[in-house]
Amino acid sequence: MDEVRRGRVVGALQPGDLLPSVRQLAADLGVNPNTVKQAYRELEREGVVQMRRGQGTFASDMAVNGAERKRMLREVANRALVDAQRHGAAPEELIDSIREAARSADTEAAG
């Protein structure tokens, strides 16, 4: 489910893209097909996908909404915060070191 949401946010999944069938995904992951169906249904309720009878499940053409993007970033931030805390670092330190890391990544990309 998170994979599909992420795909939608980062643009890997375009509106109208066909997602794997329940059968295909269940077989690929070796999970109960009902679990896959449930996940698709939940994504449909959230408006991320659209299920068309007899045709399959499609990425929905709803514009990627900012709220979803924000939610995803919030999750990333939370994970980092928890990790930093475990290492005894304060949030401010984490933010500084993220800025630093981003700068050096930029320089590397430029060089």
């Binding site: 329940v22 059968r23 269940a26 077989a27 992951l29 070796g30 999970v31 109960n32 097909p33 896959v36």
Partner: peptide, 14 residues
């Protein structure tokens, strides 16, 4: 084992 689980899951879907 993975293949067997996959076969079972596909069987259940079908």
């Amino acid at each position: 084992r993975e293949t067997t689980l996959s076969v079972l899951a596909e069987h259940m879907a079908e």
